[in-house]
Amino acid sequence: MNLQLRASNITKSYHGDRVLKNTSYSFNKSGVYVLTGPNGSGKSTFLRICALLEEPDSGEISFLSDGKLLMNDIAMRRRITLLLPKIGVFNTSVFKNVAYGLKIRGHKSDGIKEKVDKALDFVGLSHKKYQKAITLSSGETQRLGIARALVIDPEILFLDEPTASIDQKNTKIIEDIIIRIKREERVVVVTTHDMAQAERLADFMVIMKEGKINEP
């Protein structure tokens, strides 16, 4: 376990509405953390701030490796990734979508091909490799998002409501994928408002209510 995340006293407001109220939490062990709670409890906002996609109004997000505090630079940012609920498919092939994270890191084509093939195989999309990504179904699109995130081998993987917009069959497929990711040495943080799903996936349950975290 290398990378650890510490969120300290995070506050965030939108148009005067306080969404997060001095929220603190540490993700310091590998496994699946499930952030759960009712709609509007601040789960997604907390996740987006932890994943450095948004700035908090106050408080601090710190990343530590072997006890040392890391600089919040691009090298550090590239050790984590967030899968958004609407993943943002690039209007190109499935292969190129998954290859994106590797390309921007300057990987060579041979290495890219091998890693993309492995990631697509992991999520069961190998047969759609050359298909235009925007033609995938909702469930397949979520799996594409997971492949795109996994291919860059993040030490912390954030999944924001990964099954919110898909049917039961695809929800089961995504849950199985998350359970398989769980066997690897990494931190996975998932948000969901589905308590049953939270119980199926969680190594660590994190309950949010009215912008605060209540550990059970």
């Binding site: 996609l53 590239r78 967030l82 899968l83 958004l84 943002g88 690039f90 994270g101 795109r148 995130a149």
Partner: peptide, 15 residues
Amino acid sequence: VDPIIGQASITLGAT
């Protein structure tokens, strides 16, 4: 272009 494209690229490590 949907703003989500920019956000997706950032989450994947884009400068």
